[in-house]
Design a protein around this nucleic acid. Structure first.
Lengths: 340, 340
DNA sequence: CTGAAAGCGCTTACAG
DNA sequence: CTGAAAGCGCTTACAG
C-alpha cells in the first residue's frame, strides 16, 4: 500500500481544518456552499479518495456485504452472484464475493475474514445440511441470510431464502408422469442436503400417488458436478438400465448424465428422457436442450438482498424470516413421451 | 455492524494492558509463553476476532488483492478467478472479487471501491483495448497487473500477463489447414480488443502463407457471448455460407455458432468444422466436443498472482513486466477433414 | 517481560 | 459557519 493523500493534506492545501474537509465530503448541511465547492474541487484535483477503513472504523458501518458461494465455476452460483451483486449495489452496498470451494474449512476461514473486515451482513449460499448451524456458530450476532436451504425446516435460528424444493420435486414428477414414464430414476440425491431431500420427497410423494416407486441413486459427495453426474450414470448404465426417464438432482449432474449416455451409446431423449434442476444457461444450448426446473435466480437474489438489508437496518435479531420462491418448469427437448 | 469484543475487553479480563494482548496475538517474541497462552485462551473463549480495519489502518497493509473480471457468468473468468483466489490464499492474500459487468462505468466505480478499501494490489482481467490506460489513470500508484491483454504492445506503463494470442491464432490456422480447409471464416473479431487483433493476425498470417484469405466477421460488441455468437452466425448462414470451417474468437462465441447452425440445419462437424478459443469446461461436454485453443487458465492465474505479490513486496514501480504463456491446441470432434 | 503513549485516517459532538 | 478535541480498534517504538 502506497501512501495516499489524506484529509489532512487537503485541509492544509485549503487552509481549513480537517473537520471542515470531512464535512464537505459528507455533504454536511452546516457548511457554506462556497467552502464546500472549493474543498471538493481540491479533492478532485489532488485525486483524494476517502480511506474506507478509517471511515468504517469510526462509523461502525462498512456498507459491505459478504457473500459465500460453494463454487464459482458452477454457473448456477455464478449467475446468482451476479444478481446479488447488482441488486446490492443498487441499494448502496458493495459485495465481497467469496469462494467456499465446497470445503467446510475454507468456508470457516472466509467467515473469519468477513467478520474481521466488519461486513454489515453475510449471505451464505449453500445446500449443505449444516449451513444454518454454521451461520449460528460462526456469526452468531451478525445479520445473515442462508440462501438455498430452508432454515425453517432445519430448526436453526437463521433467516433463509430458497425456492420451494418440495414443489420443485412435484413439478418434475408431474412432468414425467404426464409424458407416460413409469420406470424412473432419481439420480444424485444428497442425503446430507436438506434441499435435496425436500426435492426428492416432493418427487417421490407425487410418484407414489401414481403408484410408482422411483429408483433413487445417492450422490455421496458434498456437491453436485458434471463429473459426479457422469460417474454415477456410468455405474447405472453399466448395470443395464431399464428406466425410460432420469430426473437429475441438478443441471450439472444432468450434463454428466449426457456424457455417460454418450459413452454407452444411449440416445437422449430417444432412449431415455432426462430432466434437470436449476436451469443454468448451458442447459439452453441447442445440443443440450435440457428440460429442467427453474430456480428463478433473479427472484432469489433480490429476495435475499432485500431481506438482509432489512435486517441490517432494523437491528432486529429476535425474529427470523423464511422466504420461499415458487419454481417453474422449463420444457425443452430432453424429455419426450415414453414409448413403453 | 454489531459491537464486537475488542482487545480492550480481553485486556480487562486478563488483567493486562492492550499492548500485551496485541503482542500475544501477533506472536511477538518479547512475551512470556505463559502469558501468551493465557491471553490466547481468553480470546478463544470470548470469540475475539481482530478488527482488520483497525489493524490495516495502522500497518498500512491489508493483505487483500482486488480482482476485477468483466463478467462472472463467463466460465472462462469463473475458472480464472478460482485459480487466482486459490493461489493468492496460499500466499496469505485474500481476494475481493468484483464483477465489472462489461461496463466501463461500473469498472471505474470498482477501482474506487478497491482503492478506498486500501487493497495492496489490483488485478484487472480484460481484453478491452483501453484496459491498460484505465489502470494507469485510475490506479497510478497502486501495484497492478493487467490480465489478458499484452500491455507491452499497447505501450501502457503497466504490468501484464496473458497468453500468446499471436501463437494461439497460428495454432488455430495450422490445425484447420492440416485438415484441408481452404474456405474459412474467422467469426467474432473485436476491433477494439488488442487481444483479439493479435489472435486474428496470427491466424490470417498463417493462412496467407498458405495462400488463403479467410473471411473475417467483426463483433461490434464490447464482449463475447453465446448470444452474440449466435446472432452473428445467423447472419452468416442466412446469406448462404460456403465455408467448410469456422474459427470462433472464443468458446462462448462457438457455442453460439452451434446454436445458429442447429437452427439452419447445418451439422457440425459434418457440414462445417468449428474451432473455438479458451477451452472452458463446457466445451468438453459430449454433445459439444469443441476443438479449441487452451488458454491455460491455471498457469495464467499463478503467473498473475506471483507477479502482483512480487510487485507489492518489492515496492518497485519503475519497471514493468510482461509475461506470456504459450497456448496449446485441444483437438476434439468439432473439427474434421474438409471434404472439398 | 510489560505498560503508557502516540498515532493510523477519519467523524462528530462540543464550543465558539 | 468553523475548529479543537476525543475517539474508533489497533500496533509499536519508547521507557522501565
Amino acid at each position: 500500500m502506497r501512501q495516499h493523500i489524506t484529509i489532512k493534506d487537503i485541509a492544509r492545501i485549503a487552509g481549513v481544518s480537517t473537520s471542515t474537509v470531512s464535512r464537505a465530503l459528507s455533504n454536511s448541511p452546516e457548511l457554506s456552499e462556497q467552502t464546500r465547492q472549493r474543498i471538493l474541487e481540491i479533492c478532485r484535483r489532488e485525486g483524494y479518495r476517502v480511506n474506507a477503513l478509517a471511515r468504517s472504523l469510526i462509523c461502525n458501518k462498512t456498507n459491505v456485504i459478504g457473500l459465500i458461494v460453494p463454487e464459482m465455476t458452477n454457473p448456477f452460483y455464478a449467475e446468482l452472484s451476479l444478481g446479488i451483486e447488482t441488486h446490492a449495489r443498487s441499494l448502496g452496498y458493495n459485495v465481497i464475493l467469496c469462494n467456499g470451494q465446497n470445503d467446510a474449512k475454507v468456508t470457516e476461514e472466509l467467515f473469519g475474514f468477513l467478520i474481521s473486515h466488519q461486513v454489515d451482513g453475510i449471505i451464505l449460499a449453500s445446500s449443505q445440511q449444516d449451513a444454518g448451524t454454521m451461520i449460528q456458530k460462526l456469526a452468531p450476532r451478525l445479520p445473515a441470510v442462508l440462501l438455498g436451504t430452508p432454515a425453517l425446516v432445519s430448526g436453526d435460528e437463521v433467516n433463509s431464502v430458497c425456492i420451494d424444493n418440495l414443489a420443485g420435486g412435484r413439478l418434475a414428477a408431474e412432468h414425467l408422469l404426464e409424458l407416460g414414464h413409469r420406470d424412473i430414476v432419481y439420480l444424485g440425491n444428497r442425503p446430507n442436503s436438506l434441499t435435496h431431500q425436500l426435492r426428492l420427497r416432493g418427487f417421490t410423494e407425487m410418484m407414489e400417488k401414481a403408484g410408482i416407486t422411483p429408483q433413487v441413486i445417492d450422490n455421496p459427495h458434498g456437491c453436485s458436478s458434471i463429473d459426479i453426474g457422469c460417474a454415477l450414470s456410468r455405474k447405472l448404465f453399466a448395470n443395464g438400465c431399464s428406466a425410460t426417464a432420469i430426473f437429475a438432482s441438478t443441471d450439472s449432474m444432468a450434463l454428466g448424465v449426457l456424457q455417460a449416455a454418450d459413452e454407452y451409446g444411449i440416445s437422449i431423449p430417444e432412449d431415455i428422457s432426462l430432466l434437470g434442476f436449476d436451469n443454468i444457461i448451458y442447459s439452453a444450448l441447442p445440443k443440450i436442450e435440457l428440460s429442467t426446473v427453474d430456480q428463478r435466480k433473479q427472484l432469489l437474489a433480490e429476495a435475499t438482498v432485500d431481506l438482509l438489508t432489512r435486517i441490517i437496518d432494523s437491528d432486529e435479531q429476535d425474529e427470523f424470516t423464511h422466504r420461499m420462491i415458487r419454481p417453474t418448469l422449463v420444457s425443452r427437448s430432453s424429455c419426450r413421451a415414453s414409448k413403453k
